[in-house]
Design a protein around this nucleic acid. Structure first.
Lengths: 333, 333
DNA sequence: GTGAAAGCGCTAACAT
DNA sequence: ATGTTAGCGCTTTCAC
């Protein structure tokens, strides 16, 4: 707990032998000043370790150099990379981030909206766990809002989402490349948009090769146990299959586990592709799982960039998609 | 993007037919006012949807009603619950949280310290992934700092940590209760304080029953694969054992997996207790894993409370420990 | 090119 | 009990 009150502009001005007005111009770079005056001020500021008081800046500019980050859903594996990506690009722009956890609760969300508006935030970033569209906040606030991961219901809002369909295509292309032709799909719950988008992309890839799924798509829950069940169902059906695309790494891990127990070799008999590229799952599985990475950090980064632009008055409405990436591991090669 | 400039105190005062000074007294509850005057002001504020401008408050009070939350380590599974716990108790106190990710990088940490001081934060919460002591920030800042999860090196700083030793005792007591007497310990890397504290507590529990480990403690890495290796080592040693305490759920899962493959039944032949209570691991394992929960949300909550107190001038220096909890599942019963 | 002064929204002394 | 006013730290006209 060091003390010594922080130096203010008046201190800098005094040390530099100028008025506060001049010091301000020198520090902000606005207005016309003699070179040596400017340098004297800069030197004084440096010497004193001067940092402008953000509250004062905010009062005069009406801005806060702060954005709100509302996580509308259980904060977890998905939101965190998005947050970090956003933080990175906002922080380099001198923006600070107010962290607001709304826990899927509209009441808490309202509370945060009020708080953020009282704090004059320059913009708001909204992120959720589910990739399904969420209600727009645009009518409630007077600053730009960008939705990351889970898009707004309103198409003219600014949203950034992973390209699930393209991820599905990657999975399909890869399985075809490693010579698989009798393919199955195990999605998450049918209530999730992502389950369908990933399937659609997967089918598009197969269609481009003149193929389709060998056996009807399965929709289960996201967990490992669901993957085990799915494996049992596929085996029981009796349809021959040599490749499976699972909509989560957890499903993939459970499925691989059960296939192995049943004497089916992965990848020799059946190649498996997962989704999420969650290393805790992909690397712990035997064999490790080939997976689709949603590049969530990039999602956050792009969202933050768009927010910064929107704050500057350059809006780019609509849904922006971030490409997925294929990570090849032992479950397919 | 609703517009309409936010009402200010002057607007409230005008509507209520009083001066701004009076309106301020009514709203803050300070000073003496006639009851109906106060109510008129309150009604006007309510009607206009008035929220005080935080920048102005900050300028006059020198406070910001904001705390910085610095995550000094890769933000992940451990930091997130701590953050959420902290958020919860700070938000109810009208405090907002500035989210600062320092990524284990001292340079970034310095950057944030400067930023936070420019923003006049009222206090700082520091959280890290590792439970080993970290360098103190006290000499760099002029506001209270509380360290959550990873304590400060300086014993007179305020730190909040999970009680690893007590967690180890819980594990020991439980294994004894379910009738196990030939016990082994598999820790994380020896470089982690937590590996030793958990072992110490475990041994204390055994000692209280006149026992000690049957076989020398193992120190491996935290992952599943390490658990598998540990299982092989224990089996190879040939020492008989009927209970194992693992310092992470990942280790426990790998160990259970390998024991099962080797024909050793869990929990019939060997009971296993994990640590972290990470459901992705504990529930996906077969059998599900009995584990020790560090109550990280509580750690964050306590840290936030202590920070609030410290800001109010009531310091409670020292290391505060939060108790762990035993969660019983199929791997021991 | 530089300084003086007003004003951002609010609170707290001080008048009345 | 209420109104008036100074001032928090800064930027920005407006004079000089």
């Amino acid at each position: 707990m060091t003390n010594a009150p922080r130096p203010k502009l008046a201190d800098v001005a005094r040390v530099a032998g100028v008025s506060t007005g001049t010091a301000s111009k020198a520090l902000t770079g606005r207005g016309a000043l003699r070179r040596d005056t400017r340098e004297r001020v800069l030197a004084a500021a440096e010497k004193l370790g001067y940092e402008p008081n953000v509250a004062a800046l905010g009062l005069v500019s009406g801005r806060s150099y702060t954005v709100g980050l509302i996580t509308s859903d259980q904060l977890g594996r998905f939101s965190v990379p998005v947050m970090l990506g956003a933080e990175d690009s906002l922080a380099t722009g001198q923006m600070a981030i107010l962290f607001c956890d709304a826990r899927e609760d509209p009441v808490r969300e309202r509370h945060w909206i009020r708080t953020l508006s009282a704090r004059n935030v320059d913009g708001i970033l909204v992120t959720s766990l589910r990739s399904d569209p969420r209600p727009s906040l645009s009518d409630l606030v007077s600053v730009p809002v960008v939705y990351a991961y889970s898009p707004s219901e309103r198409p003219d809002d600014i949203s950034v989402v992973p390209d699930d369909a393209q991820g599905g295509r990657l999975a399909g292309d890869h399985l075809l490349e490693v010579g698989r032709t009798r393919l199955a799909y195990v999605g998450g719950p049918a209530s999730y948009t992502a389950s369908h988008l990933r399937l659609r992309g997967f089918r598009e890839a197969l269609a481009a090769a003149g193929l389709d799924l060998t056996t009807a798509p399965l929709f289960v829950s996201w967990e490992e146990e669901a993957g085990r069940q799915a494996a049992r169902m596929l085996l029981r059906r009796g349809d021959e299959f040599d490749g499976v695309f699972c909509a989560s790494d957890q499903i993939a891990r459970g499925l691989i586990d059960e296939l192995s127990s049943a004497g089916v070799s992965v990848p020799d008999d059946v190649a498996v592709v997962g989704f999420d590229n969650w290393d805790i799952m992909t690397l712990a599985s035997r064999p490790p799982i080939t997976s689709i990475d949603m590049n969530l950090t990039k999602v956050g980064d792009v969202a933050a960039r768009l927010l910064t632009e929107a704050i500057a008055g350059e809006a780019s409405p609509g849904e922006h998609r971030v490409e997925c990436t294929l990570i090849v591991r032992g479950s397919t090669v």
